[in-house]
């Protein structure tokens, strides 16, 4: 029974991975990755990693993939020609992948670990359960846990700074930065200054006289 589940899940994992690489439209690549992740969660369950499987499905296949879909929709999932820089590079990449596979294969066989061909250590109840993982995370692995939370904070702030809407192009930013007096609160409130807000992007709060082209340029933001 478990071997049937394994083969079905493994085929799903490999098909999803190939789909990600081969499909031309990035949107379909994201969907293939979702299928890959869900099959992978099945493999994790077979390996008694219940908590990791649940986290994988909820965090990865749920949240992160939604982020991907949003960005693909925003950037426009234009059909990119699958062609890479040339057939030569693709051949080299394929050779490199094959060489890597051979190397890994040799590493697995050469390790001559007898336990690799067995079913693993005897199963003890509670292995990989949320309670065990939580206990480990809060006792032995407290430091990595805290560092990971800090890393998440840094990444979130970094993403906001990278993707925020900026006023005009780079030069305008530069010339307004030094003294700050260029914009007053009253001006912002009266809507005469592009604030880079969402209301502005929707075309609200603009001077009537401004040309449509200027509005678009400002509203799209420079950065």
């Amino acid at each position: 029974m478990s071997s049937v589940v394994f083969f079905v899940a493994a085929i799903g994992v490999l098909a999803g991975a190939i789909g990600v690489v081969v499909l031309a439209n990035p949107f379909y690549s994201v969907l293939a990755l979702v299928a890959h992740l869900i099959s992978l969660a099945a493999l994790f369950l077979l390996l008694r990693a219940e908590f990791v499987a649940a986290a994988q499905v909820v965090v990865y296949a749920g949240a992160v993939m939604v982020l991907y879909v949003f960005v693909v929709a925003y950037v426009g999932g234009q059909d990119q020609p699958v062609r890479s820089s040339g057939p030569g590079l693709r051949l080299i990449a394929a050779l490199f992948g094959a060489a890597l596979l051979c190397e890994l294969w040799i590493a697995v066989i050469g390790s001559s670990l007898k336990s690799l061909t067995e079913h693993g250590a005897p199963y003890t109840p509670g292995f990989g359960s949320p309670s065990q993982i939580g206990q480990l995370l809060l006792t032995r692995f407290l430091e990595p846990f805290e560092v990971a939370s800090f890393l998440l904070l840094v990444a979130a702030v970094g993403a906001v700074i990278l993707a925020r809407r900026r006023r005009g192009l780079g030069d305008e930013d530069e010339e307004r930065l030094p003294g700050f007096p260029a914009i007053s609160v009253a001006e912002v409130l009266s809507g005469r200054v592009p604030t880079g807000s969402m209301a502005e992007a929707a075309g609200l709060g603009y001077e009537v006289g401004e040309s449509a082209a200027g509005t678009r340029r400002q509203a799209r933001g420079g950065w």
């Binding site: 991975a17 690489v21 890479s84 590079l89 990449a93 394929a94 992948g97």
Partner: peptide, 14 residues
């Protein structure tokens, strides 16, 4: 190992 190699190929070609 197979998935890793497929991923490497993708990173190099796409």
């Amino acid at each position: 190992a197979l998935v890793f190699c497929i991923g490497t190929y993708g990173v190099l070609t796409r």
